[in-house]
Nucleic acid binder design. Structure first.
Length: 279
DNA sequence: AAAGAAGCCAACCGCGCTCTA
DNA sequence: CTAGAGCGCGGTTGGCTTCTT
């Protein structure tokens, strides 16, 4: 039995998003609390599939996204997390507030991999590359990459998040033992602790989690739909609407989206939404 | 200045998981 | 218990930009 496509592909637009589409999606997301992504394009007046909308929102349009190059400390954190988690980008991203899994993944593939190789570290295994005669610089066959755990295995990692969080804390404190040579990849110093951009009250008061880039509105909503969370939902929807209303002035001004980077990212990559919104 | 190569990243694809009826 | 719907995730691709010759 073949899997049905996520939506009827006929007549749906693909490829790069236009300014108009972005506007529609952002406006919709800020003014509604959609219960399913499937319904989003229809309700927002977009000729896109729900999946495409979710991707565009989570990877590009979300207000709490921190754009621009990863800082050194972020990069170090990614490297360390990758050595522990492997290619579990969403997991890695959850430790980098404001970053998206797609962004981290791209950055890993285009920058960090090269950097590590240059430093003599195998990006797969995080072990020093041992040049062997007759073969390339890689010794992938000698070292297994971080074990990719199955979903069922992941269930057994119930304490994973907390344990790793503690590890990251240790990492920040410089106490953790590392799989790779710390001489070559300096660890984070305490002063390098990243202050989540989500501390901007505007972003954090909204239901969009800043602790996990993959925490989409949909996932938030699926949680919120839970009876146990109804009360929270009402509260968060109110907060979200407050944010939306206050921020809608952006859209009323015939906003040029190219200015968004400036709006949501200052030179340090830290957001100052409070200032922006309150003004 | 032009052409080709390399780099980069947004977006797509499809699998697997969870939830629900 | 089962099947279907929907979502999240990771891998891959396509096309634009920048660099090199």
């Amino acid at each position: 039995m073949g899997r049905r496509p996520c939506c009827e592909k006929v007549g749906l637009k693909k490829g790069p998003w236009t300014l108009e589409e972005d506007k529609k999606l952002v406006h919709f997301m800020l003014t509604h609390a959609p219960s399913s992504w499937r319904a989003v394009p229809k309700l927002a007046g977009l000729l896109r599939c729900g999946k495409s909308c979710r991707l565009r929102w989570t990877n590009y349009l979300r207000p709490d996204i921190k754009r621009g190059l990863l800082s050194d400390s972020e990069e170090k954190l990614v490297i360390d997390l990758h050595s522990r988690l492997g290619n579990r980008w969403s997991k890695i991203t959850s430790y980098l507030p404001g970053r998206t899994d797609n962004e981290i993944k791209n950055h890993w593939n285009t920058h960090i991999k090269k950097k590590l190789r240059k430093m003599g570290i195998d990006p797969l295994t995080h072990k020093p590359i041992v040049p062997s005669s007759g073969e390339g610089v890689h010794n992938d066959h000698q070292q297994q990459p971080p074990v990719r755990v199955s979903a069922t295995d992941r269930k057994d990692e119930s304490g994973d998040q907390l344990d790793l969080a503690a590890d990251v804390g240790e990492l920040v404190d410089g106490k953790a033992a590392h799989d790779f040579c710390t001489d070559e990849v300096p660890m984070m110093e305490p002063h390098e602790i990243i202050i989540p951009c989500g501390t901007a009250s505007a972003a954090s008061s909204c239901s969009y989690s800043t602790s996990s880039s993959s925490a989409s509105v949909a996932s938030s909503n699926s949680i919120l739909e839970n009876n146990k969370a109804k009360e929270m939902k009402q509260q968060q929807q109110l907060q979200c609407m407050e944010w939306a209303e206050s921020s809608m002035s952006f859209w009323d001004m015939d906003t040029d989206f190219t200015d968004w980077n400036l709006m949501f990212n200052d030179g340090d990559g830290l957001l100052d939404l409070d200032t922006l919104i309150l003004n």
